[in-house]
């Protein structure tokens, strides 16, 4: 009988990949973090379906604008002053804060995209199972989250249809905003109702009991090493004193951008189920 795990990386390899790159994005200074973020976006975006990509881009642009504006409005650090206001308080608006905002937004987007593409390379059940062995309750939570995310996307399609039907009746902008808020709340409500059935199913099927076994203990294929190597290589490169290696010094950011896509070299079917 075929083992579907053979097409996906060992859960620990997948987890290391995810944790490693999120760690690099969050803990390194801007040039490296930006390179890692772009690399993760390049890794994640091709694995999303057109529909997922559209939803992700919509969410991404909203968050990009919010995070960038937040920095621009409230962060006064920096030398290049774009303009200055005197009311209600005297303060400058700097190019540096704008840049800083864009970098933070890109980092956030990269983690969002990496998280959205996770089910493509780690099936939700295998990820949650790995976690549930160590932390049963946290594993259940992860399971519910991962099982609910795709449902959120499919429910959002339904809600958008409802929005489209209700919208033409009320031309007022304030009403439209109110309606969209209510519809998106309804979407969350619907998704949570589905999650209740998921949790019922988890409970009745013994999820979280230990010891747990696996019908097909996940094999560790040599190509799965690429998932482990990818973030490790990036960390090693960052630890090497770069000025001594001229070649790396010039290309370090390009290499870090390309490294997240390293596992894709193993085989094309790694990402198919």
């Amino acid at each position: 009988m075929a083992n579907s795990f053979k097409y996906t990386p060992h859960p620990l390899a997948g987890l290391s990949f995810l944790a490693g790159w999120c760690g690099i994005i969050l803990s390194t200074p801007p040039p490296t973090a930006l390179a890692a973020s772009i690399g993760c976006l390049l890794f994640a975006i091709p694995s999303l379906s057109p529909r997922q990509l559209r939803s992700a881009l919509l969410a991404a642009s909203i968050f990009f604008v919010i995070i960038t504006s937040f920095h621009f409005l409230f962060d006064t650090r920096g030398k290049t002053i774009l303009f200055h206001i005197s009311w209600p308080i005297s303060r400058p608006f700097t190019l540096d804060s704008l840049q800083q905002g864009s970098i933070q937004a890109t980092k956030f987007l990269a983690i969002l995209a990496l998280g959205s593409s996770t089910p493509k390379f780690i099936p939700p059940d295998s990820l949650a199972r790995s976690i549930a062995i160590l932390f049963p309750k946290f594993g259940t939570l992860i399971f519910l989250t991962l099982a609910t995310l795709p449902r959120l996307l499919s429910n959002s399609e339904r809600i958008l249809l409802a929005y489209k039907f209700c919208l033409p009746h009320h031309p007022l902008t304030s009403f439209r905003i109110l309606l969209s808020t209510k519809l998106w709340l309804a979407l969350l409500d619907q998704t949570l109702a589905d999650a209740v059935q998921t949790s019922l199913s988890l409970h009745c099927r013994g999820f979280g009991l230990s010891p747990r076994t696996s019908a097909y203990p996940p094999p560790f294929h040599p190509s799965h090493f690429l998932f482990l190597i990818s973030p490790l290589l990036a960390i090693s490169l960052l630890l090497i004193p770069l000025p001594k290696i001229q070649f790396l010094d010039k290309f370090i950011y390009l290499i870090i951008t390309l490294l997240p896509s390293l596992p894709k070299l193993s085989s094309s079917h790694t990402f198919t189920h």
């Binding site: 579907s4 099936p123 939700p124 449902r151 999650a195 019922l200 199913s201 999820f207």
Partner: peptide, 8 residues
């Protein structure tokens, strides 16, 4: 669909 938990 809400009860389905595995990848295959």
């Amino acid at each position: 669909y809400a009860q389905s938990l595995a990848s295959s």
